[in-house]
Nucleic acid binder design. Structure first.
Length: 275
DNA sequence: ATAAGGCCCTGACCGC
DNA sequence: TGCGGTCAGGGCCTTA
């Protein structure tokens, strides 16, 4: 599941492939992938546009075009954006095909069909509700504490709320809570300022480590798995302390890692280290 | 405004 | 081997 580190890896590795190249058009095989404009108008609008710079906001990829418009891509659960020379990789999960000016193909593939693509003049149309970037200066301990104060929902649930902080998903939420020593079911408003500060530090550290390892590949088969744009696996799954380690000994204290469900999401934690 | 639940989707996995 | 049922899960929508 692509979260901030996985999307950042995509952006870094796709940028040299796409920058300066022109899109010739688009074939759309699953109309709902195109969120804006509609699938009918998308191909003529993207045709002829040249990629300028690539960026990221939360879990959204921003492919900026020389025209000033931006191609925004959200991979959701199982989306893949890749550049291929060989049309043989086109399969029934390939929902958008964008030929490039040098004969290569920019492909959007997604077995689960949750991923979305926008082509917009102003990215704020898509991103306006997102909270601060966790690795940038606007994400502060004080601001984070204000967002959590008075909230009765579990801290795990609120870490997944993109309005509070952008880019954290299930993997990095569990790992950050472990690093901060906080029980995921704690009501968010019950955390002391010290706890909030520790969590703030842990979120930044775990995301930075995830980026350094090029994201987390979970070992599921085929397109179900996150892989880097060139097909290589990420490496952060080898650093997990609790995520999908249910029943295995905590790497710090040897207590069995537990799994609970919070906000309809699997949640993993060490009952001894996190209270 | 907040919290909780449903929905979109389909491959993988499980039990029989 | 084959088959039906269940699960995962980000973001958005509805309901209370």
């Amino acid at each position: 599941m692509p979260e901030l580190p996985e999307v950042e890896t995509y952006v870094r590795e796709l940028a040299p492939e796409l920058t300066g190249h022109r899109v010739l058009g688009a074939q759309i095989h699953w109309a709902r992938t195109i969120a804006s404009p509609d699938a009918e108008h998308f191909p003529s609008l993207i045709a002829g546009q040249r990629f300028a710079t690539l960026g990221r906001r939360g879990k959204y990829m921003l492919l900026r075009l020389e025209s000033g418009m931006t191609l925004v891509v959200h991979l959701r659960m199982t989306g893949h954006l890749r550049v291929e020379s060989n049309a043989a990789v086109i399969d029934r999960h390939t929902h958008v095909i964008m030929p490039l000016d040098d004969g290569r193909l920019l492909l959007f593939q997604d077995p689960r069909k949750f991923g979305r693509i926008w082509l917009v003049p102003d990215v704020e149309e898509v991103l306006m509700r997102l909270g601060p970037e966790p690795l940038e200066g606007l994400f502060t301990v004080d601001g984070f504490a204000i967002q959590l104060s008075g909230r009765t929902a579990s801290i795990k649930t609120l870490l997944l709320d993109q309005h509070i902080v952008a880019g954290v998903g299930n993997i990095y939420a569990d790992e950050a809570l472990f690093r901060a020593g906080i029980h995921p079911a704690r009501p968010a408003g019950s955390l002391s300022l010290d706890c909030v500060a520790a969590l703030h530090t842990a979120i930044r550290a775990v995301l930075a480590d995830g980026i350094a390892k090029a994201g987390s590949s979970l070992g599921k088969s085929g397109l179900q798995n996150y892989v880097r744009p060139g097909g290589a696996w990420g490496g952060f799954q080898d650093e997990f302390k609790v995520f999908r380690r249910t029943g295995l000994p905590c790497l710090v204290c040897s207590s069995p890692v537990e799994r609970i469900v919070l906000g309809q999401r699997s949640t993993h934690f060490c009952p001894a280290c996190q209270r």
